[in-house]
């Protein structure tokens, strides 16, 4: 357990390690989401009413911030993953730090735009 806590340690770490820690954390978040998602879909086998009951607890305006956070985790994991792939092919190694900032910026832009769209459609 002590080793898992080290993922959250920030002091003495460079921005590269922090990006690495966030990548792991967002990966776990996405895994949990995927399990829940598959669980919801599996509930269809036990009847429509059970599925509807599940969906009605999660798909509503009050849970929209959670959806927004899920998008944040997804965008971060995707963009940072792309950066890691580039670096692991030996590309852009010299500008690895700048690449982290660029990917984080892209994450924030995509996240803010997707949240804006989400709220726009729900309000409508």
């Amino acid at each position: 357990m002590e080793r898992v806590w080290k993922w959250f340690a920030i002091r003495g770490r460079s921005v590269n390690s922090i990006a690495y820690s966030f990548h792991r954390i967002t990966g776990i978040v996405l895994l949990i989401y995927l399990i829940l998602h598959l669980g919801f879909l599996t509930s269809l086998r036990f009847g429509e009413s059970l599925y509807t009951a599940f969906i009605s607890t999660t798909v509503k305006p009050e849970t929209l911030p959670l959806d927004s956070l899920l998008f944040l985790a997804t965008f971060y994991h995707a963009f940072n993953g792309f950066r890691v792939v580039l670096n692991e092919f030996g590309l852009f190694y010299e500008v690895r730090r700048a690449l982290i900032y660029l990917m984080t910026l892209l994450t924030l832009i995509f996240w803010i735009y997707s949240t804006y769209l989400m709220y726009t459609y729900v309000v409508r």
């Binding site: 770490r13 460079s14 590269n16 390690s17 990006a19 690495y20 890691v84 670096n87 692991e88 030996g90 190694y93 690895r96």
Partner: peptide
């Protein structure tokens, strides 16, 4: 997994991550 902390902390400027 390319945290590249090794390159950041090397006192001789070696780039192990690369």
């Amino acid at each position: 997994h390319f945290a590249s902390e090794c390159s950041e902390n090397c006192p001789k400027g070696v780039e192990p991550a690369q």
